[in-house]
Simulated scan of single mutants.
Amino acid sequence: MNGINISRRLSASFTLVLKTMLETNYTTPFCRLSLQKKQPPDSPHYTSSTFWRKFMSSDPIATWHRLVKERNTQGLDALLAEDAVFYSPVVNTPQVGKSITKQYLSAALHVFANESFHYVRELTGDRDAILEFKLELDGIAINGVDMIKWNEEGKITEFKVMLRPLKAVNLIHQKMAAMLQPGA
Rank of each mutant, 00 (worst) to 15 (best):
D83P: 02
H110C: 03
F117P: 00
V90D: 00
I142H: 11
R66A: 13
S58H: 15
A113Y: 02
V145R: 08
T93N: 12
P89A: 01
L67I: 10
V120Y: 05
H118T: 04
M56Q: 12
W52E: 12
N143M: 08
I140W: 10
I130D: 01
E115K: 04
I61L: 11
F51P: 00
T101Q: 07
F86A: 10
Q74L: 02
A81S: 15
I130P: 00
N92F: 11
V90E: 00
P41L: 11
L105P: 01
F86L: 12
L135Q: 04
L80N: 03
A84P: 02
I142K: 08
T47S: 10
R121T: 05
V68R: 14
G75H: 05
T124G: 00
N72H: 07
N114A: 03
H118W: 01
N114K: 02
V96A: 10
S106F: 05
T93S: 12
V91A: 08
G154D: 07
S88A: 04
R71M: 03
V145Q: 07
N72C: 05
S48N: 07
H118F: 04
T47F: 12
I61M: 07
P94T: 08
K98Q: 14
E152L: 15
G125I: 04
G97L: 05
I100V: 15
T63R: 14
N151R: 11
L123C: 02
Y87G: 00
V90C: 00
H65K: 14
K54N: 15
N114Q: 02
Y46T: 02
F51C: 01
H118Y: 06
K98T: 06
R127T: 09
F133G: 01
G75P: 01
D59M: 09
A108S: 14
R121M: 08
Q95S: 07
F55H: 11
I100E: 13
N143I: 11
G125T: 12
H110R: 15
L80Q: 05
F112N: 02
L79F: 04
K102W: 05
L123D: 09
T47N: 10
N92G: 14
I140A: 05
V145A: 14
L79R: 05
V68S: 10
F117L: 13
L135A: 01
K54G: 04
F86T: 10
N114C: 03
V111W: 00
V85G: 04
P44I: 11
G125F: 14
G139W: 15
E122M: 11
V68A: 13
K134D: 03
Y46H: 15
L79Y: 06
S106L: 08
F133C: 02
V85F: 10
L76T: 06
V68D: 10
N143S: 13
R127H: 13
I130M: 07
E132F: 10
I61D: 01
V120E: 09
